[in-house]
Computed example of a mutant assay.
Amino acid sequence: MKTIQLILGPSILLAGLLTGSAAAQADTLPPTLAGETFVADTPFPSGDSTGCTNGDGTGTFTYHFQGTASGPYPGTFVEDVSVTAGAPVLPDTFTRLTAFHATFTITSVTGGVTGTKDLAPGASGLAYCSLGRHHRATFAAPSLTYSAAISSGGHTNTDEGTASATLQYAHPFSESFLTSEGLSPTTKDQCKKDGWMDYPQFKNQGQCVAYVNHQQ
């Protein structure tokens, strides 16, 4: 019995060390942006709207928002949004959202995040731009895509996924990060020393390095 313990003991210990190493390796990545939400600190019209070049609710307008970020990266956010309202859906009502682009920054104890959002290919939404005295503008963008760089723990990773955003009259600006495709490395060093195991999309170090090379 003692002999069996001497033989199996090191094997069990080695397996435990390998399992522990893999678990520790998997814990090194920060969270994705899935579940993150933005809310502007003050209600509409908190941003500086410009544009509204036409009198029928169509045109391009921009906003600068800053407010509270909640979720995996709690803290504050700043976002600049450009929206284009196209052909009217119904007379004197909402027009079709034909373009959406935003740049954003999150300041959080979890990490620093910078990124962009755009209207998903083939998607649309609703928007309206008024040239009245109060210069009202509103939009609903249910299908956006985002791309972000997340800096945490001395490393930077990229994250991509889907999001949605709304701005309604007399309501705060709100935005949600809905899904994520998972984090990806930005340097070859992140692939070495079993670092590639952090990223389930890669089967080995070579695939991880090849991905980084393709992005550069």
Rank of each mutant, 00 (worst) to 15 (best):
G195P: 04
A210I: 01
E175L: 15
S174E: 12
K188V: 13
E181F: 11
P172W: 11
Q201L: 02
K193C: 08
T187A: 06
E175C: 09
Q205P: 03
V212W: 06
S180T: 09
Y211P: 00
W196G: 01
F173G: 00
P172Q: 11
F173R: 04
D189H: 10
P172K: 08
N204I: 04
C208T: 05
F202Y: 14
C191I: 02
K203D: 09
A170F: 15
L183M: 10
P172G: 08
D189P: 03
K188I: 12
E175W: 13
S176H: 13
E175S: 14
F177D: 02
F173H: 12
N213V: 14
P172H: 14
S184H: 07
W196H: 11
Q201F: 01
M197A: 11
D189T: 08
Q190S: 06
K188S: 12
C191A: 05
V212P: 07
C208Q: 03
H214R: 11
A170Q: 15
E181T: 12
D198N: 14
F173E: 00
K193V: 14
D194C: 10
Y169I: 12
N204Y: 03
N204S: 09
G206C: 02
V209K: 13
Y199A: 01
S176D: 10
A170P: 01
F202G: 11
K203S: 12
T187R: 01
G182C: 09
A210W: 02
S174W: 04
D189N: 10
K203Y: 03
F202A: 12
S176G: 03
F173A: 00
G182L: 09
W196I: 03
D198E: 13
C191M: 00
A170M: 14
Y211H: 10
K193D: 14
D194V: 13
A210H: 08
C191H: 02
A210C: 01
P200F: 04
P200G: 05
F202V: 11
S180V: 01
P185M: 09
A210E: 05
S184F: 00
C191P: 02
H214Y: 10
Y199V: 02
Q190T: 07
P172E: 10
P185N: 10
N213Y: 06
S184C: 07
D198H: 14
S174K: 05
V209N: 07
S180A: 10
K193N: 15
C208G: 02
K203E: 09
G182N: 09
Q201W: 00
C191N: 02
V212D: 05
N213A: 15
F173T: 02
M197H: 08
C208E: 01
Y199R: 00
N204H: 00
G182V: 08
Y199W: 10
Y211I: 04
T179P: 02
D189A: 12
D194R: 11
S174G: 09
E181K: 14
T187V: 05
E181M: 12
N204T: 06
T186Q: 07
D189E: 11
G182M: 09
S180I: 01
S184L: 10
K193F: 15
K188R: 11
L178W: 03
Y211L: 09
C208I: 06
G195K: 04
Y211Q: 05
P185Y: 02
P200C: 06
M197I: 12
G206I: 03
C208N: 04
F177L: 07
N204C: 06
Q207H: 07
V209F: 08
T186K: 06
D189G: 12
H214C: 02
G182D: 07
Q201S: 12
